[in-house]
Amino acid sequence: MTSTATTATTATRTALVTGASRGIGRAIALRLAADGVRVAVHYANNEAAARETVDAITAAGGSAFPIQAELGVPGDAEALWKAFDAQADGVDIIVNNAGIAGPGRIHEVDEDAYDRVFAVNAKAPFFILKHGLDRLRDGGRIVNISSGVTKVAFPDMTAYAASKGAVEVLTLTLAQTLGHRGITVNAVSPGTIETDIHPWMADPAAKAHAASFSVFDRVGQPDDVADVVAFLASEQARWITGQNIDASGGSGLGL
């Protein structure tokens, strides 16, 4: 495929959302589908969860299909786009959401753990976008999910924070690179979001502590982030690019 693809002439746009089988990615997929977007629901290993996301979209009258590709391994981007190409011809929205946490202070992070975090969180989005640009139609949207840990020092997530910092710089660079095609490139930085990857929130005291970071005194929900992504993916956000939108509920404003 070539970069000569033009803006979609039909009302239906197509989106790729990585890590869309659960959590924030699932909420983004559902939200985009509610806006009439056909969604490629990417997953790494949990096919059942991806099918649940697709089924939820189709039950609501939307359109979606699952694609599988493990990220953070050689050839991951090529495998992802091969699976995508089997079911769609071109893309209008790319949301790089998939990521892993990789906790630990610098003296606790070994090279294998560091390489794994960067392979999934920074390298995979880079090459997904590299190989996706000849499929992304002019006037398209790229949204990269970053994190609030790039805004304040968070020593317990050193490698993770560094990987998300790389994503933010990539966002800025690509906004400049792709502007001539009418493509916007933005990042969204959530704070603490209540998903199944945070089982510690089952402890009321721990959840209350997390809620205290936000000026609204609650933890974020996946829909809080999905709505921001949907806006950036819309025509209404056509004049916004190269930005990192804080979606943390005002976390850390008093620091």
Score class of each variant (00 low, 15 high):
A233Y: 07
A40T: 04
T9I: 11
L255E: 08
S214H: 06
R13A: 02
T14H: 12
I142C: 00
V225I: 15
M1N: 11
A88D: 13
S214T: 15
I93Q: 02
T7F: 11
V167E: 01
A29Y: 04
L129W: 05
M201A: 11
F65E: 02
M157C: 04
E111G: 10
S234P: 10
D196P: 06
A205W: 01
A44W: 01
A56Y: 01
A211C: 08
A237Q: 02
W81L: 09
V39F: 10
T18L: 10
E78K: 13
A40G: 15
G165A: 09
Y43G: 03
D55W: 04
A124G: 03
I67Q: 11
V37F: 08
A44R: 15
V215L: 13
D156M: 12
N144G: 04
T10V: 07
T4S: 14
I183V: 15
A49F: 06
A33R: 09
A113I: 02
V188P: 00
T177F: 07
Y160F: 14
P199K: 03
I197K: 02
I245C: 02
E168Y: 01
V215I: 15
G139T: 08
H209S: 11
A64C: 10
V54M: 07
D156W: 03
G249H: 10
S63R: 12
D76N: 13
